[in-house]
């Protein structure tokens, strides 16, 4: 390889390192003064006469652009340090670590002035409501379709379940983690497990408890549901690491009735 080619290869590697360094500083919020801008500029200048084809010139421009961003960050850094809001991040992290959460909340309440806002019907939501009403099937049709859902259903809250001692407050997160492990274990063979096979338990009470915990596993991204609409079979598929879904995509709500009749039918099925 000629000396010129060697120098070119070396130069490209240098520029790439400069780009990576500047990006790391920006992305991780590291002190931008760690980048020696004079040296970097000297390196860029040194290799500049070597560049000929457009790709090389693009790399050179990119390195310059990243350097400019770092200089901007340095300017912001100085500005921030001179403001009254400047505090050493390590010091603040240490303070927050030491404080109990009740105290942190109390401090926050002293500086928090929530906005007063009233919701009301907007033209958009009104139009949406009209569209919904127009596409809604007559009630006698809908009732025919859902004959099995004649049972009076009510929503429950975590507080109510706490009162009935179905779940315990302090261990909830630990329980959820243990339950997730159990799901992973049971679904090990196929990577998924049929919904009722997992939630079904010898007593109705235990079945409801398991269904409730399962709903949390799904909501918090520990598992997902796989539904075969034709066969009407629901599978639970655990994730190896939690995948947060809230706020990232449009969530859908899927009510799964767990009536005593369903449970009895499942029990009969298990016995036979």
């Amino acid at each position: 390889m000629s000396t010129r080619k060697q120098k070119k290869a070396q130069g490209k590697a240098h520029l790439q390192r400069i780009i990576d360094l500047c990006r790391t500083v920006e992305e991780r919020g590291i002190d931008p003064f760690l980048v020696e801008t004079d040296d970097v500029l000297k390196t860029i200048r040194e290799y500049f006469p070597e560049w000929g084809d457009p790709e090389e010139r693009c790399l050179d421009a990119e390195a310059l652009h990243e350097l400019a961003s770092t200089i901007k960050l340095q300017s912001e850094w100085v500005k921030h340090r001179s403001t009254s809001l400047y505090t050493d991040p390590f010091l603040i992290e240490e303070k927050l670590q030491r404080l109990p959460k009740e105290e942190i909340a109390a401090i926050f309440l002293k500086s928090w002035r929530p906005i007063v806002e009233f919701e009301q019907l907007s033209p958009n939501s009104f139009m949406e409501a009209i569209r919904y009403w127009q596409s809604l099937a007559p009630i006698n049709e809908r009732w025919q379709r859902s004959e099995s859902l004649r049972i009076q259903t009510e929503t429950t809250t975590r507080e109510e379940l706490l009162d009935q001692q179905i779940i315990a407050e302090r261990e909830f997160s630990q329980k959820l983690e243990t339950f997730w492990e159990e799901l992973k274990q049971e679904a090990k063979a196929e990577g998924k497990i049929e919904y009722w096979s997992f939630i079904g338990a010898p007593t109705y009470r235990e079945t409801v408890r398991r269904a409730y915990l399962t709903s949390f596993l799904i909501t918090y991204g520990y598992a997902t549901l796989e539904i075969d609409w034709l066969e009407e079979i629901i599978h639970i598929k655990p994730f190896t690491i939690p995948v947060p879904t809230i706020g990232k995509k449009q969530a859908i709500s899927l009510p799964i009735p767990i009536t005593i009749e369903d449970w009895q039918r499942w029990r009969e099925g298990v016995k036979t």
């Binding site: 603040i92 303070k95 002293k110």
Partner: peptide
């Protein structure tokens, strides 16, 4: 909603 200066000052004062 948040008085950022006050919040930081109070955290630092603890």
């Amino acid at each position: 909603e948040v008085d950022q200066k006050k919040l930081v000052e109070m955290v630092m004062a603890q």
